[in-house]
Design a protein around this nucleic acid. Structure first.
Lengths: 249, 249
DNA sequence: GAAGGTTAGTACGCTATGGTACAGAGAGGT
DNA sequence: ACCTCTCTGTACCATAGCGTACTAACCTTC
């Protein structure tokens, strides 16, 4: 069951990582958490650019993209309310050769880099932080998502990849509606826009979705799950296993 | 300059991660490091299987593969003397949905899981361990390699991918010779064996490599670099940036 | 040196996807 | 109501890579 559609007050607990923290620790962070709107298309960081903040999405979805020299792009991973944007900050290295762009508008809590770093390192000191193991497990799940993206890109059809993409997005949204043009989906998947049109047309004919000018209604989620490749389930299971506080679906 | 081909005595310092540790810390680990041979094809861990050890390759190269339900496979990343096999052990989660298989025979130092974990966690205590930040930065580099694999799978031709694969392997070997059948390369790249035959044939006609029954001699490395897609350089630069102790090339 | 296995090369048709061009269908402004 | 812009649908050809079948080199072993 997804939650009721009533406009809920924003709370850090809408992000599963923050929600998984012990009460005291979350409250400790709360003073530094800043709620920010993430409009569609906003670039949180650019390839190779240092990050000033990390973002814990609540209702927004962020795509990690690689943009090639010739301008073509491909989605590497997607981050919603189950995760955090900006792992390079606590993993070290400061930057990544990717771009993080808002794929579905919404909100996120952001935290200044130094605050996160000090909290992350506060491990084994007087007080045991549970943030570090949590973030590391999340990173593992992200790793799996990237690995599976590579596999999917190699072996699966656009139809299957579109199903995977829709399901991954759906899992990170409160409703069955998403605002997304075919053009943008094509950018994410790294395929032609026409390819998405055809694939989406097939899904629509099958009665699984309804598409109209940037708005997708998912009518038959089980139908999508029946068509998707194994990649989706592998990723979903891994997130659930590593971050069991709450199934991401 | 690659090192002279003389058979050197094995040393943990042949692995760049171990080599990057301060002397005292390496010596502390040395009692637990165990040199093991890694024959071609050996499976270090299976998808979803718990790991008892981590491996620091010195002369071996290990591939991380995803094996699909139908048996087809795709390489996710490759680990040589610049890295470590078994990051799930310190990242948490214990397992990964991949298989780690020896792609080029050689040696590695292995370390019992619990030893690594305790050393990894010995951070912020009385003594600051430099192992943790090192391994986390390595994980970031691995992340980039996976991301770039996804991009490469999406956008680049078999020829380009073969070049990338050869260069990545070359960077992890002391010589310009590799033992590798086209069949195996095809498994790694997740393409048909015939596709590799044709791509390799083109490289051979161009005088860049010589291929003969499982043995490849790279004759013209700059030639390969001229044909490879940007993915190779992105990964190489990222490894160099994050693990600057020694360029992996 | 003959036999059998492994590795590599070649050929042919098929399909998914890319490149390109253009037409239709909504939405929004004036 | 009309124009215009954005988004979607369709069509056509080109091509990279797949599936399959077969042949040709080469290596090993008897």
């Amino acid at each position: 069951m997804t939650m009721p559609a009533a406009p809920k007050p924003a709370s850090p607990r809408q992000n599963h990582l923050l929600d998984a923290l012990p009460k005291a620790e979350l409250e400790h962070l709360c003073t530094d958490l800043e709620l920010v709107p993430l409009p569609l298309g906003k670039v949180l960081y650019e390839s190779g650019e240092g990050l000033s903040h990390v973002y814990f999405p609540t209702t927004a979805i962020v795509s990690l993209l690689y943009v090639m020299e010739n301008g073509a792009s491909a989605e590497i991973a997607v981050v919603g309310n189950e995760g955090i944007v900006g792992i390079a900050l606590f993993m070290g290295g400061e930057t990544m050769p990717n771009r993080a762009v808002v794929q579905s508008a919404g909100q996120a809590y952001r935290l200044k880099g130094p605050v996160l770093k000090s909290e992350f390192a506060r491990f084994g000191g007087r007080r045991h932080s549970s943030l570090q193991p949590l973030l590391l497990r999340y990173t593992m799940a992200l790793l799996t998502q990237m690995a599976q993206t590579a596999v999917c890109n190699r072996h699966h059809t656009i139809d299957q990849q579109l199903c995977r993409w829709l399901l991954l997005s759906l899992d990170r949204l409160p409703s069955n509606e998403l605002e997304m043009t075919q053009e943008l989906i094509a950018n994410m998947l790294g395929v032609r826009r026409e390819g998405v049109t055809e694939a989406a047309g097939r899904l629509q004919s099958a009665g699984l979705i309804r598409y109209s000018r940037g708005h997708i209604s998912v009518l038959d989620r089980p139908g999508l799950e029946a068509r998707v490749c194994e990649c989706y389930e592998v990723v979903r299971r891994e997130f659930q296993r590593l971050l069991p506080s709450r199934p991401i679906a």
